[in-house]
Nucleic acid binder design. Sequence first.
DNA 1: TTGACTTCTTGACAAATGTCAATGAAACAA
DNA 2: TTGTTTCATTGACATTTGTCAAGAAGTCAA
Lengths: 191, 191
Amino acid sequence: MFKLFFKNFKEKVALSNDEKTAIGENLKSKEIKKGQFLLGADEICNHIVFIEKGVLRTYLKDESGFEHVIFFGLEGWTAGDLNSFMKQQPARFYIDALEDCELTMISKTAHDQLIETIPAFESYMRILMTNAYMASLSRTSDLISLSLEERYKNFNTSYPSIIQRVPQYMIASHLGVSPETLSRLRAKIVD
Amino acid sequence: MFKLFFKNFKEKVALSNDEKTAIGENLKSKEIKKGQFLLGADEICNHIVFIEKGVLRTYLKDESGFEHVIFFGLEGWTAGDLNSFMKQQPARFYIDALEDCELTMISKTAHDQLIETIPAFESYMRILMTNAYMASLSRTSDLISLSLEERYKNFNTSYPSIIQRVPQYMIASHLGVSPETLSRLRAKIVD
DNA sequence: TTGACTTCTTGACAAATGTCAATGAAACAA
DNA sequence: TTGTTTCATTGACATTTGTCAAGAAGTCAA
């Protein structure tokens, strides 16, 4: 139970058995099947989830109804609409499962309580947020400064397993282009 | 000294006088003139800075030498190449002053020590990172899902003061387009 | 003031990407 | 198996954006 979660935790912050027990009591497990939703836009995001197994997709819809993939989550990653979670406001994102998933969930109540009572948990969240911010910044930099071809090659080398597990049109969406454009790029690269 | 820094701090986390003193001993002030650099790419980012006064620009250069603005920092904002700071690796970003600046600086050594010894400081950093991540995510969402016109209008309403204080071609760069394209968009909007 | 420099605008054209439509392959369920 | 659905590819064309070049307006310093 929560196996990968605690493995990941201990790689970032030291954790006594008492602390581990206290945190464990505030976690819940959940399984969702491929195609099911974890969160819909306009709902309040009441949990952040840690992915023990499976693939999640976080995306938003623009006014035309077009879906834009914000990110993919694999084993060991965290997902959730953080803005909605922190401020308890309606979510901007949808989250659904691209494969059957096993998740470790932390509710807002549990999160707030753990932050107050377990310093190691606050340390873990600080490190998680710092890493997430750095990754997001790196993606923004790539979006602004790199060509589509460079972005695609970067994505391929950085996340080869995502390519294997996710349809190509979703990769295109994550890169910010249409499926046709990515398809043509791939045809060009082969030459 | 550090006036705006502590004002901002106390809006996020409660702070005793003893803690304030301990933190203050780990801060430094610095002034830089318009045009001067706070950080050059390939240097190690040894400080994160809090902007008491002035405007900073964070940008990177692509292989063609083109500059791409990552963000602007105004009074009350934080700047620095976080990835370089945290991992003590060469920076990817340049940071320079668009106006004369007064800065509050935290060195890596001071940061690490304060994280260890002052829980309120770790709370502050956690909240800072969380907010920075949410803002970065929001920007990524906008870049992927909105048209240039929508992004420009959003920027205008979200950061009207930046428009007043920063050359238009840098705004264009922040939006991810050429100066000519932004100029033409503005001409179109007037109609 | 004059001259140098920076910034913004505009035109003409090129390159990148989007849109729409058709096709075929692969995956999946009945 | 058969039929249905999803996905990837390709062509034709439209739209957006970039590039290069020129010029106008403003700023700043000697």
